[in-house]
Structure formats: structure tokens, C-alpha cells
């Protein structure tokens, strides 16, 4: 890797009671790159994401941001670092419009009064910078948007806050072909703007299309952390289902040099 990771987890362990979910997991997210997190159901993807987002406290392990160790005790700490999560159920209010949703909870104000003009300008700016062309108007209500458009709004909302890292949980899971296309393009543009993106996905086609690196989880351990160009789809499937890949030498002991 040419650059150093923006966010790095080292030797993360997490248990729920007697269930040891994450075993010595290492994860690195680089600025300007899309890192895909793949793994079967129950491999620990969601737990890892929630650990990054500060929702679950870590049992042991090191949380490094921008090269420095940091303490993350809650979602507020994570968002203070510039980490935004887009959850699978998008957490948008259907009765509010796009601008209102993007600024929800962080409204811009002049005195006690909402500064609608600044918010609308800023929202427009962000959508334009991500080349979002799929919404008719920033003042239409979210209930009128299609699934792909909602995903777009949710991602743009995460990008609005000069976030450094955006975690996307299965952003294309419920989308049709054309909409998946749009969302993947958006993910790419988000990374190209310098944001570190972690993409959780089941869909290997999506992963190979947009990701720079792939981190595969198998039963709570990192099975591989490889550059996308160095692996084939078949090898990744092997990693997901068996935890090893016969013809992928050395990748099973990843980030030893990181």
C-alpha cells in the first residue's frame, strides 16, 4: 500500500457471553479506497462494523485512527472522528424531504431559526459533487423516492459531514440492476473524493466491480486481506466458505506488515 491506513484495528476480540465472535481481527481502511468486507452469515461482519462505529465496546485490541491510537466508547466518539455508518434499513424519515433528512439532528441555524437556504445550498452542493442525477428536486419528500434514490440520499447524508470514513452495510441488497449501478458508481465517486469506504456485501459481482481491497471474514477470523486485482472470484468464494484458498499463498496471514 502506498499510503498508510486511515483507520486500523489490530487484534480485535469481541465476545458476547461465551460466544467468541471476533478472534484477533485486523482491519485496515485506506483513504480514497473501497475496502470490501465479505463473509458468510454469522462470520462477524455486522459485529465488526458495530465495533468500528463504537456501538460495541471492544474486549481487547487496538483502535488506531490516522496512525494514532484512539479510544472509542460510543457512536458519538466515532462520528467525532469522522466515521459515518449507512445502515441497511436506511434510517430516513419518509415524511421529510431530502434536505431535511440530510441535516436531521445537525440542522444549520441562524439564532433559533433554521437556516433553510444554507442547508439547501449545501445539500445541492454535496449531491452535485457526487454527481447524483437521480432525484428530481432536493425538496421532494423521501416517501416519493425509489429504493436506489433513498440509498443515494443516505450515502450523500454520510458524505455531507466531511466524513473521513463511511461504512456501508449491504447498500445494494434490495436494489434492481439499474439502481445497483447508480449506487456502485456513487460508492466509487465517494472513494475517489478521498473518503475511506468500507463496503459490506454479499454480492461478489459488486465487490469485484468497485472494491480496491477485499477483507474476508471466516468464523470471526480474517481469512484474507488482499488487493482485488490479485484474486479471482472463485478464490474469494473459497475464502468465504472454507476460510482458506489453496492457490492463494501467504494471503491467509494478512497485514503482518501493516
Amino acid at each position: 500500500m502506498s499510503t498508510s491506513p486511515l483507520l486500523e484495528l489490530r487484534g480485535i476480540n469481541k465476545s458476547f457471553g461465551v460466544v467468541h465472535v471476533l478472534h484477533d481481527v485486523d482491519l485496515a481502511i485506506y483513504p480514497g479506497q473501497v475496502t470490501a468486507l465479505v463473509g458468510d452469515n454469522g462470520a462477524g461482519k455486522s459485529t465488526l462494523v458495530k465495533a468500528v462505529a463504537g456501538i460495541y465496546p471492544l474486549d481487547s485490541g487496538e483502535y488506531r485512527f490516522d496512525g494514532k491510537p484512539v479510544e472509542v466508547h460510543g457512536p458519538k466518539d466515532a462520528s467525532a472522528l469522522g466515521i459515518e455508518v449507512v445502515y441497511q434499513d436506511l434510517a430516513l424519515c419518509e415524511n421529510l424531504d431530502i434536505v431535511e433528512n440530510m441535516f436531521l439532528g445537525r440542522e444549520m441555524k441562524t439564532g433559533p431559526v433554521l437556516d433553510e437556504t444554507s442547508m439547501e445550498s449545501k445539500a445541492r452542493e454535496v449531491l452535485a459533487s457526487l454527481s447524483v442525477r437521480t432525484v428530481k428536486s432536493v425538496r421532494q419528500s423521501v416517501s416519493s423516492l425509489s429504493g436506489g434514490q433513498r440509498q443515494t440520499v443516505a450515502i450523500a447524508k454520510a458524505a455531507l459531514w466531511n466524513s473521513k470514513i463511511v461504512l456501508l452495510d449491504e447498500p445494494t441488497a434490495a436494489l434492481g440492476v439499474a439502481q445497483t449501478r447508480q449506487v456502485l458508481d456513487l460508492v466509487r465517486r465517494l472513494a475517489d473524493s478521498g473518503v475511506g469506504v468500507l463496503l459490506i456485501s454479499h454480492n461478489l459481482t459488486d465487490v469485484f466491480e468497485v472494491a480496491d481491497r477485499i477483507t474476508a471474514l471466516y468464523l470471526g477470523r480474517v481469512a484474507a486481506d488482499v488487493a482485488t486485482k490479485d484474486v479471482t472470484s472463485r478464490q474469494v468464494v473459497e475464502l468465504i466458505t472454507t476460510g482458506t484458498s489453496s492457490d492463494l499463498d501467504g494471503a491467509a496471514a494478512p497485514s503482518a506488515t501493516a
Binding site: 434510517a91 430516513l92 424519515c93 415524511n95
Partner: peptide, 10 residues
């Protein structure tokens, strides 16, 4: 309005 529309999102 946000709480009325989607308490979880709020």
C-alpha cells in the same frame, strides 16, 4: 416531525 415519521431514524 422526524420522531412522528420514523422514531428509529430520529
Amino acid at each position: 416531525y422526524a420522531v412522528g415519521g420514523n422514531p428509529e431514524a430520529a
